[in-house]
Design a protein around this nucleic acid. Sequence first.
DNA 1: TATATTTTGTGACTTCTTTCACAACAAATG
DNA 2: CATTTGTTGTGAAAGAAGTCACAAAATATA
Lengths: 227, 227
Amino acid sequence: MKEVTKYIIKNSLKRIFLYRACLSRLKQMGVDKVFSYTLANEAGVTPAQVRKDFSEFGIKGNKKGGYEIDELLSKMEEIFHRSKDHNIVLIGMGNLGQSLSRYSKFVQRNMNIVATFDVDPFKLKMRSEIPVYSMTRLKEIIDRFRVKVAIIAVPEISAQEVADELIRHGIKGIVNFAPVLLKVPSEVVVNNVNLCDELESVIYYVQKILKSEGLKNIELLYKDMKY
Amino acid sequence: MKEVTKYIIKNSLKRIFLYRACLSRLKQMGVDKVFSYTLANEAGVTPAQVRKDFSEFGIKGNKKGGYEIDELLSKMEEIFHRSKDHNIVLIGMGNLGQSLSRYSKFVQRNMNIVATFDVDPFKLKMRSEIPVYSMTRLKEIIDRFRVKVAIIAVPEISAQEVADELIRHGIKGIVNFAPVLLKVPSEVVVNNVNLCDELESVIYYVQKILKSEGLKNIELLYKDMKY
DNA sequence: TATATTTTGTGACTTCTTTCACAACAAATG
DNA sequence: CATTTGTTGTGAAAGAAGTCACAAAATATA
Ligand SMILES: NC(=O)c1ccc[n+]([C@@H]2O[C@H](COP(=O)([O-])OP(=O)(O)OC[C@H]3O[C@@H](n4cnc5c(N)ncnc54)[C@H](O)[C@@H]3O)[C@@H](O)[C@H]2O)c1
Ligand SMILES: NC(=O)c1ccc[n+]([C@@H]2O[C@H](COP(=O)([O-])OP(=O)(O)OC[C@H]3O[C@@H](n4cnc5c(N)ncnc54)[C@H](O)[C@@H]3O)[C@@H](O)[C@H]2O)c1
């Protein structure tokens, strides 16, 4: 089993998520039709980019008529198989894990954290709305709820061993918050989210901005960060 | 003042962070010298990629001798201006904000959350180690600690107004956790982190993997996500 | 000191991504 | 119903990112 490290998700997919968020917002504001340039403007990209991305995901609009927001949104739901619910487990109910387990947006998008796990016996809460189980029950719960995706929020030192155990029990996708690049077999998807790096990269660019006051530099800089 | 939307940070910069993490780990394991292929293997990229990235950031090694880990790390510190401390403010002490404010890795990397802010009067704690102030004291604290970078962890609905206020008080960089694309002037850096999207993109790829059992598809898929 | 060996650093090449530009089409207009 | 208008969808062009391959350099070896 070839062990590899993976990291980032295709930009075009991220932009589709972005478009969806913009569309939802426009819809709430009472808009029900967009042109590629309306959406592009909203999302901070070019109209051609919007159309190319749509093309990649097989999303079609109406010549001259633009795109119906409702149609777009439901096409996107379809692409993401968002109709059905997705059961998730979360490992590590510390600071971050507890925060994530309470995050309501996951549920809004049909991603349900059905159970959480921790090694610390003081953290266990079997009867809570989102239960906190001991790690010994991991396999049982993954099987019962047909869980395929897990969130890792354990300390750096334990992240790889937890990942290995999850994969042994059939997990195929992991969002990893521990600041370590997980090694996983090639048929498993990992998205390593490193919040320190996210903050640090902002600091890096801010320092550059503060040093170079000239506008030309800022334009260049902007390219580095544009979607 | 041209308002633009920004999103992502250059891949090569992210890889430099990745290399740094790998190097720290290797160092802890007692290694003190690497070749481009050692590090590449550790980071899951090609040796050429490592050397190209180093070249972009002006990092030089020793012909035949590879790279001294200590030298590499201190060169990286230098690039990221990590010698001095960076003062950060955090807005929104809810679930996520509280978790982030307690995250020790920020401090380890000289990024200090000097103060946090919230509108909710019940959340205020002026005498705590990391104080929670009312928003009225924002300008005072930003000025006093020469803060240039902020973390936004307020609800979606308030994120743009908070960003505007921060920028008015001289903030030049923002890490935004609210699931909304902030509009900011072009001399301000924003890194929008959307955890829902991160999770959802993993689900997307997992579904693809589960559908297409053939190995060729997985190779293709893998390309989509590789660094 | 000459030769062999090994690894860097980078220009050339390739592949991937974005932008351009325009044919095709649908709606509006007269 | 022909013509104009305006927008999509997509190949082609341009640009960016990643890989290859090899000269240059440093070290080891004889
Ligand atoms: N706190 C944050 O805001 C934050 C932000 C970004 C990343 N992270 C990362 O997320 C991870 C968790 O951070 P945290 O601040 O919540 O830490 P924490 O120490 O508060 O929580 C870790 C939890 O994991 C549990 N745990 C430890 N080993 C385990 C194992 N083998 N199996 C199951 N559970 C185990 C612990 O009992 C604890 O409850 C860390 O890797 C950290 O670097 C945290
Ligand atoms: N909880 C999570 O795990 C999580 C994960 C990813 C993203 N987020 C996002 O992070 C943000 C915060 O999430 P949360 O779960 O902590 O929400 P929360 O409701 O627990 O906390 C929000 C906090 O912001 C404060 N606030 C509201 N308006 C404010 C304003 N104008 N100025 C200053 N403070 C203000 C509130 O008083 C509250 O304390 C949201 O945008 C959410 O979508 C949260």
